[in-house]
Design a protein around this nucleic acid. Sequence first.
DNA 1: CTCGGTGATACCTACCGGGTATAACAGGGC
DNA 2: GCCCTGTTATACCCGGTAGGTATCACCGAG
Lengths: 286, 286
Amino acid sequence: MDTLETRELRYFMAVAEELHFGRAAERLGMAQPPLSRAVQQLERRLGVCLLKRNRRGVSLTGAGEMLLHEGRAALDATTAAARRTRRAGGADSPGGPRRLVLAVKAGASHELLHKLLDAYAAEPDSAEIEVLPSGTCEQEGMLRDGRADVALMHAPFNSLAGFDSEELMTEGQIAILPAGHPLAAHRTLSLADVSDIPDLPLARWSRHGTYPPGPGPEIHDQTQLAQLIALGRTVAVFPDSARAWLWAEHTAVPLTDAPPVVTHIAWPAHSRSLALAGLIRTATRL
Amino acid sequence: MDTLETRELRYFMAVAEELHFGRAAERLGMAQPPLSRAVQQLERRLGVCLLKRNRRGVSLTGAGEMLLHEGRAALDATTAAARRTRRAGGADSPGGPRRLVLAVKAGASHELLHKLLDAYAAEPDSAEIEVLPSGTCEQEGMLRDGRADVALMHAPFNSLAGFDSEELMTEGQIAILPAGHPLAAHRTLSLADVSDIPDLPLARWSRHGTYPPGPGPEIHDQTQLAQLIALGRTVAVFPDSARAWLWAEHTAVPLTDAPPVVTHIAWPAHSRSLALAGLIRTATRL
DNA sequence: CTCGGTGATACCTACCGGGTATAACAGGGC
DNA sequence: GCCCTGTTATACCCGGTAGGTATCACCGAG
């Protein structure tokens, strides 16, 4: 009577995201009429109007927006439950699984990650760690929907909201310039210096498939970016630890006014796994 | 195929908590055979063994424990989605609902709460605040399953894990003694002093219907506790602000070594409501 | 005024969730 | 050793409902 099945939620989410019954039905692999009916039923059961059916497409009501947000969290939580249960698999041992999935932004914190993995592997009865490279700022979603159990995150880029976390490292930021560029001769630079170079527009990173507006080139791969810098086509701002992968044609210049980057280890607040606790203990002792 | 319906989750949770198919079925208001079948189906779909069927009852496997924990979070999230959507109700206004439910431990932080409500009501276009009194340490659950949108919590009693929060107030703790008791004459006391009084055993608070072991009386109501103290039958430890409801027969003595109590305002990390943001802003400015 | 695109309705079918009855199995009491 | 009790699993049936197809109702654009 008041139980909100995940199937209904999935259906509503599809419609709310597409704002179009036909496309939503296609995405769900079903016909449009049963989808319409299911959403109507959902509205009747909740006793609220979720969608405004304008003759040309659909728009969300206030309650619809609420369900879109809260439903996303709920769906993530259920798929997380399924995934983590599957991973816990045959292991009948109490105290949680013997395998952890660690999400790391691809290429970031090389050295820290290496030290962490080595130190943890040396611990007595440590679990197996699977390192899962993630796209830009995707670690949050991975923790939420159970693709990962724990993540290395970088404030202020990642949001730690909703997770437990421990601080691991703080570092400054550097501008990475083509070695030959006039600015590369400076000892230090400011953010204003590098964000306003006429011949070197700041690169724009892919974020969930879309790019922020601006004149710079669209980037979704670190190697691609490195090459464009080496070719003198762009400039980028990175944490100090990015020095590890600089090319000969690159020059790193410290930024005086860039916010410091704080690397955290973060995990879902309700986690109760012994293996996770061990990893966190190891990480904070580094 | 991999979708984990809430109905299945509810069924499994009931069995996992009761560890008995018959009782679980009764609790769910259904017969036992379909419940057995549903759980079998769930196990087959997940491809893992969740329960060990011993001839005498049932026990959880590692995967079963995982699903018990993760599933609780998932079910809470879906019921929260349903509840909050219902509450968002007819309000088609963007930016979230015009009504917030604020969970407060019954009787705690009177003064702070009063100031907060007054200050917020004076704000331009403030939402309506419904104050929801909650039992001991129940605010977490209320935020998780959507009965509340925001809560006043008291560290270290409440756990802030998984929520966003702002600190509002820090206070010391006091022992509340019968006015005539010898210890009531002291200027200060230590925790050891009050936890080991032969004739005044510490009261035990109800927590989800159960009581911690010990010699003291079982308490689930502040008035009841106040009376027992006045009668010289027990002693209790409270934050400073409890002085507000002391009786004439009570004496409050500061505790030197009790951990300070920090009152926070806390809310689900993914909340995006304008009304909530306004309330938080008001609270932090107090 | 018609046509294209949208969501809603009508109707049918098949699946499956739920109920009842009963089997299979283990343990304890005599 | 045998039966009785408590437990979960199996067999079978029924009804509700999720999903499909065909079609309608509506409105905006040209």
